[in-house]
Design a protein around this nucleic acid. Structure first.
Lengths: 342, 342
DNA sequence: CAGAGTTTTGCAGGCGCATGCAATATGACG
DNA sequence: CGTCATATTGCATGCGCCTGCAAAACTCTG
């Protein structure tokens, strides 16, 4: 942290001396909106330039009681949906003047390890995505004074947390309509990790709509939100006495695993079985898959998440906000065009 | 950063008061190895527990001149190789007591934006992976006193930076041998982003070995380290008057794109053309690809990187260290078994 | 040019914790 | 019980910067 070797890092005092002003002037010169004359500021800047001075953010954090750091808590980021999210979030945060502290929670790292660490780090805000006990972690941090926004997560278990997520229920309903409209009748669902809200909501919408239209869910499996999970689930579905004619998967990576699972058994997608995913990750558009899926508007999700968080940080208000971003089906080639009309 | 609402966050002073000791005692109780009696420590801990006290790391950082934060600088992390790396690195850092500050550099965010930010943040160390001007950024941070380790990057342009990377040259040579041994004769290379060392080294080894064995590189294309880049490059190669019979790609995602590119033209892999990648990402093992590739020992890479960095931070020494991790070919089904022996 | 209003400036006192040093308490020994 | 070495403690100061307040320097009127 200190200068390598003997040379001490230059401080505001050094700059002040060189510029012939007080330390306060230096501080104000580097604080947007502070009260400094143009001449003083430029004199300070010149001296700072000469000395290679740059404000010490640790000291500033201590003095201002704001760290300028946002914690980003992710689950297993090996789901290809998340890299894009991490990248976009951290860039968007940077453009708002916040730095990103990343933590992943899964396996042997639990919410109870992460919470205290973030509190001690005095993060101004936290974005929590895709972890099991998001609510509990969120509540802890909220009580410690941080602004908290859940990303793509529901907040049923908490009364105070804000969240930004997409219309999961509506997405599930659309898929039901989409498949039913094509004459498919034996619809199955491959769930994600059971206790996570996104998969529950998607399933609820899907099954709800199927029921409304007088049908019922033909089969159900769990895919664990992973490629392998989807692969295995597909094989189980295919070996049913009466296999489904179409499968809606909790996310794209599961759907892609499912496609490969069906194909490994010699089934053709979509001719023998239709598959629909959720997310619209880049992989979904690759030639081997051409997956029909429900697109999440990532830009809108991220923009809303960061906007909401920054607003809460700046204002100090913590009123709960919920933002649902609409979804849309992207039609590719993993669903038969029309079984009825033929 | 401050407690939500009116209640101020509890400080060491509050704990000291309750425990009937001085503030120093509290500080020492929370500092491993400090001079405190057992009784004092337990009294302090009890009081801290009661008040929900936890040391303010910002203040501690200012006082100790060590932030306990390591900057992680990544390029475009949408290459599926990197999520695994980020995850593993941040977890490994956490287990060594360091928090991770993530920054991605590409597009409109440049090295010149990131450098100052990291310096100001007073990170203790920085891991730089896969960005264009890694050397320059590294030198800047090094001069500012941070420990720096380049991950999977060479350091030709810098004399002082440490690095951990795999045997790229040797990997390229192995692939040449592997293909030549199978009777393939028209070998091509699909490069990554041109100015990046990893692709240069892999190519150098590949071409060098081909030449040594009395052959020469049949064709060369640029794949940009992306799926689409590989896809397009494959199509260009396939349309040559005399197309190659095998292609070595700078990384797996390019190789996978190339496979799909060949297939889109009706070519079969490996029957019509063999493809080899580099990295061994999860995707490489999926049924549609079954990619033969060069495996990087990620665990070793990460272990060495963090180990080296932490050692430099703790000791304050900045002697340059270079660690090369061996690689090995993982044989799957994207290369013909033996064209000669038939 | 005096006086009121406005902008700039420096001073001083934090922010929460770490730590060298001197003072005190504890323990060992004869 | 006295003496000296050792283990604990608290005090005071510092880490580098921010900011309320009052003083100083300008600006503008009449």
């Amino acid at each position: 942290m200190s200068e390598h070797g003997a040379t001490r890092a230059t401080t505001a005092q050094d700059v002040a001396d060189l510029a012939g002003v007080s330390i306060s002037a230096v501080s104000r010169a580097f604080t947007p909106g502070a009260s400094v004359s143009k001449q003083t500021r430029s004199r300070v800047m010149e001296a700072a330039e000469k000395l290679g001075y740059t404000p010490n953010l640790v000291a500033r954090s201590l003095a201002t009681q704001r760290s300028g750091i946002v914690g980003l808590v992710m689950g297993d980021i090996r789901n290809p949906y998340y890299p894009e999210v991490i990248d976009a979030l951290s860039r968007r945060l940077a453009s708002s003047g916040f730095r990103t502290m990343l933590t992943t929670v899964w396996g042997d790292v639990t919410v109870d390890d992460v919470g205290p660490s973030l509190v001690q780090s005095k993060v101004d805000g936290v974005i929590i995505a895709s972890i099991a006990e998001a609510d509990r972690l969120g509540d802890t941090l909220f009580k410690a004074g941080a602004a908290v926004v859940l990303f793509n997560r529901s907040t049923l278990a908490s009364e105070s947390l804000s969240s930004v997520r997409c219309e999961n229920v509506e997405g599930g309903r659309s898929v039901a309509n989409f498949l039913l409209d094509r004459g498919l009748t034996r619809l199955a669902y491959i769930a994600g990790v059971e206790h996570i809200y996104t998969t529950q909501e998607r399933e609820a919408g899907f099954v709800g709509r199927i029921t409304e239209r007088g049908h019922q869910l033909h089969a159900r499996e769990t895919g664990d939100y992973t490629y392998q999970g989807g692969f295995d689930a597909a094989q189980r579905l295919a070996s049913l006495d009466v296999p489904p004619d179409s499968v809606f998967c909790a996310n794209d990576i599961t759907a892609i695993g499912a496609i490969d699972g069906f194909r490994a058994l010699g089934l053709r997608v979509p001719d023998d079985i239709s598959v629909v995913g959720f997310d619209d990750i880049e992989l979904a558009s690759w030639p081997p898959y051409r997956l029909t899926t429900v697109r999440q508007d990532k830009t809108a999700l991220i923009e809303n998440t960061v906007g909401m968080l920054v607003q809460q940080i700046r204002s100090g208000e913590r009123t709960r906000q919920i933002k649902l971003v609409p979804v849309a089906i992207v039609e590719r080639n993993s669903v038969v065009s029309n079984r009825v009309a033929g």
